[in-house]
Amino acid sequence: MIYYIIAFIAFLVDQGTKYLIATRMELREQIPVIGDFFLITSHRNRGAAFGILQDQRWFFIVITTIVVLAIIWYLQKVMHSKNKLLPLALSLVLGGAVGNFLDRMLAGEVVDFLQFNFGSYTFPIFNVADSCIVVGVALIIVDSLLDMKRNPVNQNEEGIE
Rank of each mutant, 00 (worst) to 15 (best):
G35I: 10
L106T: 14
L69I: 14
R46M: 10
V128I: 15
D147G: 13
F60L: 04
L27T: 13
A97Q: 12
S144N: 09
I141E: 01
F38A: 02
M79W: 12
T17W: 11
P32K: 04
F123R: 04
F101R: 02
F11M: 05
G95H: 01
V67K: 06
I133S: 02
I125Y: 06
L106V: 14
V93E: 13
I63L: 15
N127M: 00
W58L: 12
G51A: 02
V134D: 11
N83W: 09
G35Q: 09
K18C: 02
K82T: 13
T64L: 05
R104S: 11
I133C: 06
F123T: 08
K77P: 08
A107N: 13
G136I: 00
D130T: 07
R28L: 14
D112R: 01
P124Q: 03
N127E: 04
L94Q: 01
A10V: 15
L85K: 09
A7G: 07
T17K: 05
D147S: 14
R44G: 04
Y3R: 01
I5R: 11
G159T: 10
K84R: 15
N156Q: 12
I6C: 08
V110K: 01
V93F: 09
T122H: 13
V62C: 13
K84D: 08
I61T: 12
L106C: 11
R46H: 12
V110C: 05
I2G: 06
L88T: 15
Q54C: 06
T122Y: 08
R104H: 07
L39A: 04
I72E: 13
V135F: 03
E29Q: 15
D14Q: 02
I125W: 03
G159Q: 03
